[in-house]
C-alpha cells in the first residue's frame, strides 16, 4: 500500500471518528459529557482538514496517486 493511500485511509477513519463524536455530543444527556464530545469533535475536524490539505499536496506532487 502506498503512503498516499494510507493517508487517505486515515482521513476516512478520522471522518468516521468525527461523525461518531458529533452524534455522541448530540445524544449525551449529561452536559459535561456532551461538552467533551463537542470539543474533541472540533479538534478532530481540525486534524481532518490538515490531512485533507496534505492529501491534495501529495496528489499534486505525484499525480499517479490521484483518486482511489
Amino acid at each position: 500500500m502506498t503512503v498516499a493511500s494510507q493517508v487517505k485511509q486515515c482521513v476516512a477513519s478520522l471522518k468516521n471518528i468525527e461523525a461518531t463524536l458529533n452524534s455522541l455530543a448530540i445524544r449525551s444527556e449529561d452536559k459535561e459529557a456532551s461538552e467533551v464530545f463537542r470539543e474533541t469533535c472540533q479538534t478532530t475536524r481540525r486534524v481532518l482538514t490538515d490531512l485533507e490539505t496534505r492529501v491534495k499536496e501529495m496528489e499534486f506532487e505525484e499525480p499517479q496517486y490521484k483518486g482511489f
Binding site: 463524536l21 467533551v36 464530545f37 470539543e39 474533541t40 479538534t43 478532530t44 481540525r46 486534524v47
Partner: peptide, 9 residues
C-alpha cells in the same frame, strides 16, 4: 492533538 483527544474521551 489526537493524543489529547484520547485523554479527554
Amino acid at each position: 492533538e489526537m493524543d489529547e483527544v484520547i485523554e479527554k474521551v
